[in-house]
Each structure stands twice: as structure tokens, then as C-alpha cells.
Write a protein that binds this DNA or RNA. Structure first.
Length: 619
RNA sequence: GGAGUCGUAGUUCAGUUGGUUAGAACGCCAGCCUGUCACGUUGGAGGUCGCGGGUUCGAGCCCCGUCGGCUCCGCCA
């Protein structure tokens, strides 16, 4: 028979008691984490969100309580009354409360519990139960201290963000979840309207237009912790619903927005005792792609991309010559001390870069003097030149290979990994390879936090399939003042349309440790430039009006210059928690196929519900 | 839409070249135990080898399909 809680009040948490409490009478409540039964002496590890306290029951001192304790099982919910006692020579340094224990004289069993489907307390996090099992019983998985901590860090981070913006005069404004679908960007989640049968709301991909409207409304500084929805395939750092810090401010230039990004992240990172520089390094998008092959470079390690195209201009090695003839490029990274990469390892890395469209991975192993040379190119130790071995580049002559090694900046003992192809492919492949090699070779300092603001993103992306230019950020992003003439020329002359690819936007990202944590832009606030932009995107005035009419109207009633950014709460928390998985920082995440294994959603609905909505499901 | 990988007891895993009754650890159940904290100890229960089909005298193992988890490419203004 279970006990009732009645008026009993908890006096302390299970992580709270120390030697200073010795002698006090306490009431603890929590879950049975472990029972160790010695006949007439029984130990209970009592767990709550704060920690674990050892409860001792002795049959001689408290017969009834001891008898009750014997019936306890894992995850039973109990209240314990007793006295705090210093341990006699058996302190447990592994737990915060290990200097004391509670000698119980009364136990209330507040609830029993089924045997959990997996063990909550396992030594070493390496052999956790399979993730689908844990997702089905997410409420149990969340009892694990690790997830408890992550969710609490997240709560603190959100509180810090609110504190930051509130202190700086920003106004938190909630915007609707039921919006109108706009066909640009990600796939919308849509919600049928009952009252207007056949019409649909869309859930926000972000509150983009609404936050701009708050600027037109004159709030000047807006922010919101906003839930966003995108019906796209998932990744380790992507879920269909996620949370953004969304902010916007009026009468500002880019630097002023950067200051708020820096200020906010710096404020939040102090939660984990990390002090980032007041002003973060800046890097243009062009430079980031050139040096790191990525618009979100991880600066915790070096290994920059080096361009070997000039050295190979004269080569008759067909793969390289063809690449250069087609306007492509040949770049490399240098992996320090890895001239001993095996053929198998290099093959793996080749498979890796092929995923990004690279045709092959070429390599040079700059062997240290004395090391064996596969190619019979004998350089003597001490001659100032190292032996170079290369399997894939046998066609190149020795002198050229030495040139490449010099250009790459490789030292004896290093491996040079080379990719040739279209510029976008080379950047993607080598950028990803750089991260992969760093991960494999343990080049990443786990205690380092390297922030960066990437600036001057391109305004448009060329879609090869349709030969159209799409907004790289979103259709309200302002071009850079310097590129305004170029922009106008490209839009107004059909023959110059391709120049759109060169127009830079006042768009920027905040990057920490290779994660895009925030992104934003200065917006277009003048209607003629907005009209030009729609034209550039191939949107007729009629189409633009159909989709964004209310917004175009609003732009005509005195829109202030404005800009802002949105920051991914989950990605920020991933950095705070040191995890690479978004599910670790969400209480109730979905699987890679966008299902909730606990609720078993999405699910069927009643046919009468569908009827009311005028919806029929076709097989 | 595509690729890789995994799926065996409640959990984590092992399972040889296709061969008799599919094992271990932890957990669970019962007994014993006064200082444990990964308690110890004795005994016990527990299996649709993800699912379906095929090959074979015989399939956890081979083949085909399918479902699910994870990761990646495409996608994510």
C-alpha cells in the first residue's frame, strides 16, 4: 500500500547536504537510484535533480522503516525523514554529498514504478541503450544527469538572452504561429482552416516579415524567443521545429548589429566561464571560402586550403589540365605528420570527398628522410630534400611535385591531400575534408571557443537547373552600397543578368567553432530597391504583390533603415553543452524521419475531423 | 529522392566455414549477508535472432525485399 504525502514538506534536495548539516533532521524526496541490502542494514541511493544522497536504514534503530526499505525497487518515489550523520571513515568522494549520510527513521513510499526498459544509471556513457528505446521512454532518459544538465543549461541560456536584450532596451514581442504560406525558402508546415474550408495557414519558418513590421511600427528594438518550423529533412543539428532568438533594430548599420551579436553570445558563453573577445574577428565570405572552403569555418585548428592551380597551369596530367581548362581549380590541405597515411586510410578519405562531388583525391606523402620511397625517387637524408612518395600522381615529374609541396607549405613527414574540380566542389570537398581530418587526428582543442563573423555574403545563388538567381539569404536582404550600381545594371539589362552572381549583400553570420550560430542582414527599406530585387529574383510585380502585398504596402509608409539577426538556440546550447547532437539539448526531439517515438506522432486523425476541414486523404 | 551503417534476452554485446540445446555481462526475481556506494554470495526466470520471402537436408549467419534507429549527400530563402 502506498503512502500519502500529506502536509510533509521537503527540507533539502538530494545534492545539498554537507558536513555543516550534521545533526539536523531533514526530509528528502526523490527516486530510488540504487538499493544495497545487507540484511539488517540497508543503503538507499536517493536521487533527485540535484544529486544523490545515501540513506541508511538499520533494523535495530528503525525496524518499520527498514522493513519498508526492503520492499523498495528502482525508481520508486519515496520521502525519507531522518538525521544527517557524518560518515565514519567511509566518505564517498564520487558524490557531492559523500561526506554525510542520512540515517532514516521513517520512509514514505509515495509511488512505485515498473522496472525501467533500460538502465538509467550505467557506468560509462558509452553503453547507453539504443537511442530509439530511449526516445520512446524520453521521460526516463531525461532523468539521466547528463540530459538534466543540458536542459537546465538551455533554460539558463534563454534567461541570459532575455536578460541581455531586456537590459539593452529591446522589447519582446510575440508574433503569430498561424501565418500565411510564402513559397520561397523551406517547405512550410501547413495548417488547414476550418472556418475557411480549403484554405491553409502556414507555420513560420521564421518571423522574418513580422519582425520587420515591428520596425515599421516604430518599436525600434524588437526581440523574441521564437519557435520556427521547416518541413525539410533532418540532420544531427537540425529538427523540424526549433527555437530562434530573433531580433531586429532600426537606424543601424552592420557594425551595430555585430555588436549585439557579440554582446549577446559573450553574455551567454559566460555561463560556461568562457570569455570571448569583445570584438570578434571578421572575415568576408570570399575569404572564408578561399581559406577554409566553408562559410562557417572552424577556427580551432589551422589546416588552411592552399591553391595549387598556378603551379599546375602547364601540366599535361589530364585530370588537372582539364579542370583548369574548364575554369576549375586545384587546391589542397596539408595534414601534419601524416605521410604515414596508409593506402586504406587515403581510400577512405577519397570516398569521403566523393560525397561532395569530387572526382578523386590525389595525395603527396612527403616522407621524412630515411623513409622508404615507393616510387624509387631516392633523395638522400641530409640533402635538404625529403623523399616524396605519391601513388596517384606518378605522372607528375619530381620537380613539379617538389614545387607543389613547397607551395602547400608541407614539411617532411606531412601528407598533402589534393582535390581538383569546379570551385564550388573543391571548396565543399576540401572544407569538409578539413573538418573530417581534424576530427580523426584529434586536432580540435575541446576547450577552445573560436568565434567569427562572416560578412559580405553573396546576394544571390545561381540555380543551375533553372538558370535563375535565388536569394541567398532572403528576398528582403539589402545589397551592399558599393554594389548598388552593379545590382541595378544586372537587373535592368538582361545581357548583364549574370552579374547578379557578383553582388554582395549586407548579410552576415555568427560562427562559433564551425557552427553557424546566428545569421542576419540589413534589410531593404526602400520600395524601389525592393522592387528591383523582386525583378532580379524573377518575381513579376503581380506575383510579388500577390505574395508580399501587405509588406510592400507597409514599406511605403515610412520604413526606417533596419536590420537584425536570428540565432539558433539549439546550436548555441550544443556549444554550451559540448555535444554534437541537437537531440541532446531538446527535451522532446524527433527522430531523423521526423517522428516522435514517445507520442507516436504524426498520427491519424478522426475522419470527422478531416470532414470538418474539407480534407480527403488520397492513397 | 540517394548513400553508408546498425538491428540477437529488459539493456549492452559475442555468436567461427551454414550444422545438434543461441551465449556473456549488467538488469530482473527469490534466499543469505552490519558499512556498502559498480556491495558480495547462492539459486532462478527470461529469446518471433526487426519483419516477409527465397536458397539449402539444415539459416542468427547466404540472397531478395521491407520496416526502424543513426550519420551523410540532395534539401534547409
Amino acid at each position: 500500500m502506498l503512502d500519502v504525502l500529506g502536509n510533509l514538506e521537503r527540507s533539502h534536495t538530494c545534492g545539498e547536504l554537507r558536513e555543516t548539516h550534521v545533526g539536523e533532521r531533514v526530509v528528502l524526496m526523490g527516486w530510488v537510484a540504487k538499493k544495497r541490502d545487507f540484511g539488517i542494514l540497508t543503503f538507499i541511493d536517493l536521487r533527485d535533480r540535484d544529486g544523490i544522497t545515501q540513506i541508511v536504514l538499520n533494523e535495530e534503530d528503525a525496524g518499520d522503516a527498514h522493513a519498508k526499505a526492503k520492499s523498495l525497487r528502482g525508481e520508486f518515489v519515496v520521502a525519507v525523514k531522518g538525521a544527517v550523520v557524518e560518515r565514519e571513515g567511509t566518505h564517498n568522494p564520487k558524490i557531492a554529498t559523500g561526506d554525510i549520510e542520512v540515517h532514516a527513521d521513517e520512509i514514505l513510499i509515495l509511488n512505485d514504478a515498473k522496472v525501467p526498459p533500460f538502465q538509467l544509471e550505467v557506468a560509462g556513457s558509452e553503453n547507453l541503450a539504443a537511442e530509439d528505446t530511449r526516445l520512446k521512454y524520453r521521460y526516463l532518459d531525461l532523468r539521466r544527469p547528463q540530459l538534466q544538465n543540458n536542459i537546465r543549461v538551455r533554460a539558463k541560456a534563454v534567461a541570459k538572452i532575455r536578460e541581455y536584450f531586456d537590459n539593452r532596451g529591446f522589447i519582446e514581442i510575440e508574433t503569430p504561429i498561424l501565418l500565411k504560406s510564402t513559397p520561397e525558402g523551406a517547405r512550410d508546415f501547413i495548417v488547414p482552416s476550418r472556418i475557411h474550408t480549403g484554405k491553409f495557414f502556414a507555420l513560420p519558418q521564421s518571423p522574418q516579415i513580422l519582425k520587420q513590421l515591428t520596425m515599421i511600427s516604430g518599436f525600434d528594438k524588437y526581440y523574441q524567443i521564437a519557435r520556427c518550423f521547416r518541413d525539410e529533412d533532418l540532420r544531427a543539428d537540425r529538427q523540424p521545429e526549433f527555437t530562434q532568438l530573433d531580433m531586429e533594430m532600426s537606424f543601424v548599420n552592420r557594425e551595430q548589429v555585430y555588436r549585439e551579436m557579440e554582446g549577446m553570445f559573450n553574455h551567454v558563453l559566460r555561463l560556461i566561464d568562457v570569455e570571448l573577445p569583445a570584438e570578434w574577428p571578421r572575415m568576408t565570405h570570399v575569404e572564408a571560402i578561399r581559406r577554409y572552403g566553408s562559410d562557417k569555418p572552424d577556427l580551432r585548428f589551422e589546416m588552411e586550403l592552399k591553391d595549387l592551380s598556378p603551379e599546375l597551369k602547364e601540366t599535361d596530367f589530364a585530370p588537372f589540365a582539364d579542370t583548369l581548362a574548364k575554369g576549375g581549380e586545384i587546391k589542397c590541405i596539408v595534414v601534419k605528420g601524416k605521410a604515414n597515411y596508409s593506402r586504406k586510410q587515403l581510400d577512405e578519405l577519397q570516398e569521403f570527398v566523393k560525397r561532395y562531388g569530387a572526382g578523386a583525391l590525389a595525395w603527396i606523402k612527403d616522407s621524412a628522410p630515411g623513409q622508404k620511397d615507393e616510387r624509387g625517387l631516392a633523395y638522400e637524408a641530409g640533402s635538404g630534400m625529403a623523399a616524396i612518395t605519391t601513388t596517384s600522381l606518378k605522372a607528375l615529374d619530381v620537380e613539379l611535385i617538389q614545387n607543389l609541396v613547397n607551395k602547400a607549405g608541407a614539411k617532411p613527414g606531412d601528407a598533402v591531400l589534393i582535390v581538383a574540380g569546379r570551385k564550388s566542389v573543391v571548396a565543399a570537398a576540401l572544407g569538409a575534408l578539413r573538418n573530417e581530418v581534424a576530427r580523426r587526428e584529434n586536432l580540435i582543442d575541446r576547450n577552445a571557443y573560436k568565434p567569427l563573423i562572416v560578412t559580405e555574403f553573396p546576394m544571390f545563388e545561381h540555380d543551375e537547373a533553372t538558370d535563375r538567381y535565388d536569394a541567398a539569404h532572403h528576398p528582403f536582404t539589402s545589397p551592399m552600397d558599393e554594389d548598388l550600381d552593379l545590382f541595378k545594371t544586372a537587373v535592368e539589362n538582361d545581357a548583364e543578368h549574370h552579374l547578379l552572381g557578383q553582388v554582395r549583400a549586407k548579410a552576415y553570420d555568427a560562427v562559433i567553432n564551425g557552427y553557424e550560430c546566428a545569421g542576419g542582414s540589413i534589410r531593404i527599406h526602400q520600395k524601389d530597391i525592393q522592387a528591383l530585387n523582386f525583378k532580379a529574383l524573377g518575381l513579376s510585380p503581380e506575383k510579388a504583390r500577390e505574395r508580399f502585398g501587405f509588406f510592400l504596402d507597409a514599406l511605403e509608409y515610412g520604413t526606417p533603415p533596419h536590420g537584425g539577426f536570428a540565432a539558433g538556440i539549439e546550436r548555441t546550447c550544443m556549444i554550451l553543452c559540448g555535444t554534437e547532437n541537437i537531440r541532446d539539448v531538446m527535451a522532446f526531439p524527433k527522430t531523423a524521419s521526423a517522428q516522435d517515438l514517445m507520442m507516436d506522432s504524426p498520427g491519424d486523425v478522426d475522419s470527422s475531423q478531416l470532414g470538418e476541414l474539407g480534407i480527403k486523404v488520397v492513397e
